[in-house]
Design a protein around this nucleic acid. Sequence first.
DNA 1: TCGTTCATGTAAGACGTTACATGATTGT
DNA 2: ACAATCATGTAACGTCTTACATGAACGA
Lengths: 177, 177
Amino acid sequence: MMLMSLRYALLGLVAQEPSSGYDLLGRFKISLGQVWPATQSQIYTELTKLADAELIKVSDEGARGRKEYSITDDGLAQLQHWLTETMPKRVPRNEMLLRVFFLGLASRVQARAYLGAVDEEYTKVAQHLRTLGEAVDWDDSDLSVYGRMAMEWGERFAAMNQEWARWALEQIPERRA
Amino acid sequence: MMLMSLRYALLGLVAQEPSSGYDLLGRFKISLGQVWPATQSQIYTELTKLADAELIKVSDEGARGRKEYSITDDGLAQLQHWLTETMPKRVPRNEMLLRVFFLGLASRVQARAYLGAVDEEYTKVAQHLRTLGEAVDWDDSDLSVYGRMAMEWGERFAAMNQEWARWALEQIPERRA
DNA sequence: TCGTTCATGTAAGACGTTACATGATTGT
DNA sequence: ACAATCATGTAACGTCTTACATGAACGA
């Protein structure tokens, strides 16, 4: 069984609101792209496939060749199946942790520098998310509720990484014991 | 600039200890694979490329066509550059969170079931990591120190996800307010 | 008119997964 | 003898990234 998460990401966005490829590109840039990145190339290619499979259909055509897609009944059914009947099975890749495995090949100073950089990085992410969260005015719509949930996860993830990085730094004494 | 994390994962493992493809496959299965999965096919293909690029070399040949690789000076230099001079730039994909974005398309009952399943899933992961951590006897070698660091990250990550899932459940009242 | 934004599409290549294929060695 | 394990390699296909290519419409 193939995974095709991008497929469901697009199906989900189109289900929330009929959109063109260009619209979707923007929505990936500002929100979804932090959770499931996709390039312009990928989006247009997948939209064509989705339309061929009749999971979405062109519901409107506008200026400059704009094609607005809407979800079909079939598409909605598949989306809901994915959402409620399946669970993620891929082990997520983590490049930051991959380096930790090999930190023994660098000096203590370098290892400490790395962990310090991780701490700093997530401090920035945390700040960025806080700013973003304050800029949005959340209401009690589904989009707000679940959007905030994703945002909260991001904040907790950033905090967890910071705390871990600081803890990890303490495991490597600056000078040999 | 290409990313090639698998390349560095293999370089790192070979640097820690000269290994055959088969050896590496085992090490991915028990530890690294939780952070950076790789299949048998990928490992053998990449080892050939690495040897062609002279970042590793065949240092021993054994029974059954076994080829043991060791890292070269060039390979070690590139590995250390990656380790100390570069930082991850990819946005990690998160299929679990992707679904959260679209939970508004399911019923409250289904949304709650999903978050409950996330909680359960990470409870299992947490237990598994605890068991694993107790089974290993950690010493004060680099491999132990940094291995434990990665393990600690996993435990904190699992705990964070559990706490988040429980918090998220509270955001969706069982009955309409 | 001229730069920016809107808008779509394709090609090449890197990276990842699944499946197929083969055979030697070891232990019972 | 036979099963399990050790050991390597390739093919096909799917997914992702980078780059190329084109042009209409809008606003200053």
